[in-house]
Simulated assay, not measured.
Amino acid sequence: MRARLLSGIAAGTLALVTLAAVPASAADPAKLSVLHGVPGLTVDVWVNGERTLDDFTPGSLAGPLDLPAGTYTVAITAADAADASAPAIGPVDLALEAGKNYTAVAHLDAAGTPTATLFTNDISATAAGEGRLTVRHVAAAPGVDVLAGTTPVITNLTNPNEKVLNLPAGTVSASVTATGTTTPALLGPADVPVVEGTSTIVYAWGSATASPATLALATQTITGLHSNPSGVNAGEVGLVSDGGSSAWTFAIAGLAVAGLIGAGLARRAATQRS
């Protein structure tokens, strides 16, 4: 079962997280954030034979990082493997296109099978007084409606799709319900700030069919959208669990991931110099 789950997220937590181990290029980099949204699965990620992410756990977020265009050889193993000589998946060669802002999500499809989706984030400028709200369905659940208060503002959103709204700045009390219903809420209600010049991206991830259910909300923000998109600051990225866990907890986890990435780069550079 563990090997099957590893296979299921190869294109996501395998491929796209490992790109974070490559030194950033100052010339027209891509920006990449990665959300691990497969409940109950911990993995190690390797780049060119070096362990880059150790015990990467569900609910963890990596990035955003500036990355150069290029092709990278990556492999994924069960957690705490001695080396990458017998990967469960790979090695595979992966390419990353420069000049775009991405979020890669390892998640469950509607039937509960691990998969991965790469989203291209909209970093176009927002109108004065407006912010951008994007809702992404990456949970093992059927189609859902998103309610602002008691009013559906998004209907029949299915996995792995998204809906982008440009809204006046303010706070939206959002709930996620099964399509065509207003109660009970599968997630929320949760206050979602819509900030002028900022893109707020909300993810519904986990599983509605697990026992107990593992549904949770994650949020990502991209700031600086008043200016030319080519100069956008990727901003802060944080996670908020359905239970209301602090985003600072996950920010610290993100720094830990970045530290692991840096360590992998240092080891690789030392090997190349010797």
Rank of each mutant, 00 (worst) to 15 (best):
G8N: 09
V45F: 10
L19H: 13
S230H: 13
A234I: 11
D44V: 01
N166E: 13
V146Q: 10
H226M: 11
T200H: 08
V192P: 01
H137Q: 02
L225T: 01
S230W: 11
R136G: 03
P184I: 12
N121G: 12
G180C: 08
A86P: 02
T13R: 03
V34N: 05
I89A: 15
T120R: 10
A125Q: 01
S274V: 10
M1K: 11
V135C: 00
A86C: 10
V22C: 10
L61V: 06
R51A: 03
G262T: 14
S199R: 11
L108P: 04
S85F: 04
P23S: 01
D242S: 01
H107G: 00
G231T: 15
A75P: 01
P114I: 08
L186T: 05
V172N: 09
V74C: 07
T120A: 14
I252G: 05
V153G: 06
I123W: 05
S245E: 14
A81T: 02
A30G: 06
T126F: 08
V164Q: 01
G40I: 01
P64Y: 04
G262N: 14
S25H: 10
T271D: 13
T134Y: 04
V194Q: 07
T214I: 03
T113S: 10
Y102F: 14
T134P: 05
A98V: 02
S33V: 10
T42A: 00
G180T: 10
A84T: 01
G188S: 02
A174G: 03
T221A: 05
I9E: 09
A24D: 07
A11C: 10
N121I: 15
T158F: 06
L118E: 00
A216Y: 11
D122K: 08
A270K: 13
T198V: 15
L5K: 04
G238H: 11
P29D: 05
A234D: 12
V22T: 14
A270V: 13
